[in-house]
Structure formats: structure tokens, C-alpha cells
Design a protein around this nucleic acid. Structure first.
Lengths: 127, 127
DNA sequence: GCTTGCCTTGACGTGCACGTGAAGGTTTAG
DNA sequence: CTAAACCTTCACGTGCACGTCAAGGCAAGC
């Protein structure tokens, strides 16, 4: 399939796919006229990138997964480098959760500090 | 005090303070030669901005707090508009926590799916 | 009085990440 | 025949919070 078809199947744009190629994440066979030619395996790669991005990974983070799939593994996360990225991302997420919980406590304390209905005639409690 | 002194006291830069002024967050008296002249109240405003930014608020979000302080209130968060910003930020934080927890579960599941020590001779479990 | 170091304004640049847009051309599909 | 899809490269966009540079005016110590 050509780039437009792959974009449609993956729910992205041809521009993004060319950008992935420029980043070395995606390669394409070329037809004699220079058009990119993709197969199901490439679609799999794009989906892998998308699912990793969906959990907050950067494009750079997806490299080991792509390499793992290219190396013939069934899933992109069965290689050591991929698992290391998982662990790093997990640590990031944990740190972010800690920070957000601290912020949350702060906000709750501030909101509780004063009665929200102190001036009910101006700001009724129906928002 | 002049802008350099205020910047030092607040632990920021003269650039940032001028930027705040351009955004209407900070105003300054001017000496006859055109220098900005600040007092303790202005320092208080800058500290308010900083503490709000520390809990993830944008500069725009700080406007109601600044207005509240300017209106003569003792704390910037005692006005309805400020409290509304608190609530909005709290909702954002809660949404972010939910999302991060989902991501966390995903990552844990993926890491547990395969034995991390499947290839111990290459990747020992001491990281 | 001269150097050093404040201060003024305005326009534009930076960093990050992930693309998007435009120009200018060829190929394919109907 | 024409419109849609494809190709290339380079540069620009997005959002936020400033930073940098230019070109010059004031102040204070020695």
C-alpha cells in the first residue's frame, strides 16, 4: 500500500509518516516511480508508535520497540532495551504522581481553609 | 527598591519582572528618571505568582489572585475568582492523576507480562 | 571625569516535541 | 483531460515563559 493508504489505516497523516521516516523509525520500499510502498508489517510499526505515544512516551522512546519488532520479535516490548524504557517511564510516572498528589493536597487545603459560601448572596453554591 | 533589587529578593530576573509588567501582572511607580520603583507589596505579588506557578498554574491563572491582593485582601485566594481557579486546577490535577494511574497500570502489566530475569546472564536484576 | 554597572525600550530568539505548510513538480485514477 | 495523490526540501507553527540583543541613558565610587 502507498503512504495515503497507510495513513488512513493507521488514522494519521502522510506528513507524520514521512516525519517518522526522517527520524529513522519507518522505512519504505520504493516503487520504480519513487512512491513509498508499505505492507502490514509497517502498519504494525506505526500502531506500536501510536500505542506508546498514548502512554506518554516520546518518539525517541519508541526506538527500542521498533528495533525489537524489526529484529523479528513478536512484540516490541520483549527486548531488554524496551523493558528499560518501560521502567524509566514508570519511574517518571511515579514521580509525577507524587508531585501531583502534593499539589492536590495543597489545593484541597487552600479550598478548605475558607468557607466557599462565605458570601452566598453574591456567589451561590450552585456552580 | 529598583528592579534589580526586587529580582534578587524574589529570586528571579529583571527580565521576568518586566515581562510580568507587560502582562499587566505587576505595576511600578517610576522615579523621575524613569526607573521602576517597587515596595514590599510588589514583592508580595511576585511571591504570589511564584507560589502559584509552583503548583502548575500558568501566568494567566495568577491574574485573579493578583487582582484579589490588589483589591486589599490579605490573601490572594480569598476572592471567588481565585477559588474558581483553584477548583479548575484541582479538576485538572485529578484528571491527570487518573490518566497517570491508567498509564501506570499499563506499564506494570507489561513489565509483569514477561519475566524480567528471562535472560539473566545478559541483564541481571540489580538495576 | 571615567569606568562600571545599573536602568530604559522594542523587536525578535529560545527550547522542546511533533509535526504542518508551502512551493514546485510528477504520476495515477477515472 | 483533470483532479487527486504522490514526490522532494526547507522552513515554519504551536504554547509558554521568558532570554537576547541593540542602542543608549543615568548613577556612584575612585
Amino acid at each position: 500500500m502507498r503512504i495515503g493508504e497507510l495513513a488512513k489505516q493507521a488514522g494519521t497523516t502522510t506528513r507524520a509518516l514521512r516525519f517518522y521516516e526522517s527520524e529513522g523509525l519507518l522505512e519504505a520500499q520504493r516503487t520504480p516511480n519513487g512512491y513509498r510502498e508499505y505492507d502490514e508489517h509497517d502498519l504494525r510499526l506505526v500502531r506500536e508508535i501510536q500505542s506508546l505515544q498514548a502512554v506518554g512516551m516520546s518518539l525517541q522512546d519508541t526506538r527500542p520497540f521498533i528495533a525489537c519488532l524489526r529484529a523479528g520479535h513478536e512484540s516490541g516490548d520483549s527486548c531488554p532495551d524496551s523493558r528499560e524504557v518501560y521502567r524509566r517511564r514508570l519511574a517518571e510516572v511515579d514521580a509525577c504522581l507524587d508531585e501531583l498528589n502534593t499539589v492536590r493536597e495543597f489545593l484541597l487545603a487552600r479550598l478548605a481553609f475558607q468557607d466557599p459560601c462565605a458570601v452566598p448572596e453574591e456567589i451561590p453554591c450552585n456552580s
